[in-house]
Structure formats: structure tokens, C-alpha cells
């Protein structure tokens, strides 16, 4: 059994610890905001935060989150979300949850990031719709 915190709630999972965290989140906890784009840690659509660090949940065995704090898009509450809407940073939306979580980490650690900081922080999250321009603008608008 794996026990962890998911979006602030204590949860437990009874299945095999070798299953991908991505699958457990989507199939067992119905947290389908976490998307599978490639299954090999290239696209970042499955990004979640573990103890505040952004990771690809397709690369994490669920057993590895024992006792840890997992945040998915369903648990995020950030001004970034409104900024993404206003700046046109979400188009098809499939990369958006992962993108928001990666941007959230950046803003937690860097209050006033530069455009280059944003590019680096989001380099693990592929977007095919926006050319990243409006995503970068949206994140910069949330710097304090």
C-alpha cells in the first residue's frame, strides 16, 4: 500500500507500487488533468509536483511517492491560471496543466523571473499551439 498526500488530502493506493504515478492519478484517482503526451519524459504534459519539485509523472513509480506531497492541476490555485486565460496562453489546452505547474514552481522560487528564466523553466513542457510567446507573457505578468 502507498500512502501519500494528493492535492492536500491524505490518500492511499492499494495496487502495485511499480505502476506509473501518471496512470494511478488518472485511472484510480480520476485526476485526468494530468495528461499523457509521450510516456517517456519528453513532453511534460504529465507534469506534477512532488514535494514542490516538478516531475514527469510517467517516469515515477507510484511506490516512490510514499509519504510525499503530490500536487496536480486539480489542486493548483494560482494567479497564473487567470493570466493564462487573459494572455491567450492556453489554446488546445492539452499542455496547459503541466505548463502551469512548471510555471508555478518558477514563481515560487523566483519572484520576478526574466523571459530567459521562464524559457528555461518551461523547456520541459512542449506546446505545439502557441509558439510559447503568450505563455511566456502570461508567466511574466505574474512576476511580482
Amino acid at each position: 500500500m502507498v500512502q501519500f498526500t494528493l492535492n492536500g488530502r491524505r490518500v492511499s493506493f492499494e495496487g502495485s507500487g511499480s505502476r506509473r504515478l501518471l496512470d494511478v492519478l488518472r485511472e484510480d484517482f480520476r485526476a485526468t488533468g494530468t495528461k499523457e503526451g509521450c510516456g517517456e519524459g519528453e513532453c511534460g504534459a504529465c507534469s506534477v509536483l512532488i514535494d514542490g519539485d516538478v516531475v514527469d509523472s510517467c517516469l515515477v513509480a507510484v511506490g516512490q511517492v510514499e509519504g510525499r506531497d503530490v500536487l496536480t492541476i486539480e489542486g493548483l490555485s494560482s494567479p497564473l491560471q487567470q493570466a493564462f486565460i487573459e494572455h491567450g496562453a492556453a489554446q488546445c489546452g492539452i499542455c496547459t496543466p503541466g505548463m502551469l505547474l512548471a510555471a508555478h514552481v518558477l514563481l515560487q522560487r523566483t519572484t520576478r523571473p526574466s523571459a530567459d528564466d521562464v524559457r528555461e523553466a518551461l523547456a520541459g513542457n512542449l506546446c505545439r499551439c502557441t509558439g510559447y510567446t503568450k505563455i511566456i507573457e502570461a508567466v511574466l505578468s505574474c512576476g511580482t
Binding site: D53, V54, V55, D56, V105, G124
Partner: peptide, 9 residues
Amino acid sequence: IGAAQIQNR
């Protein structure tokens, strides 16, 4: 190596 997600793991 990779980006933040991969460097973290």
C-alpha cells in the same frame, strides 16, 4: 540534461 523535470529525477 533534459529540462527541470528530468534534472529533478
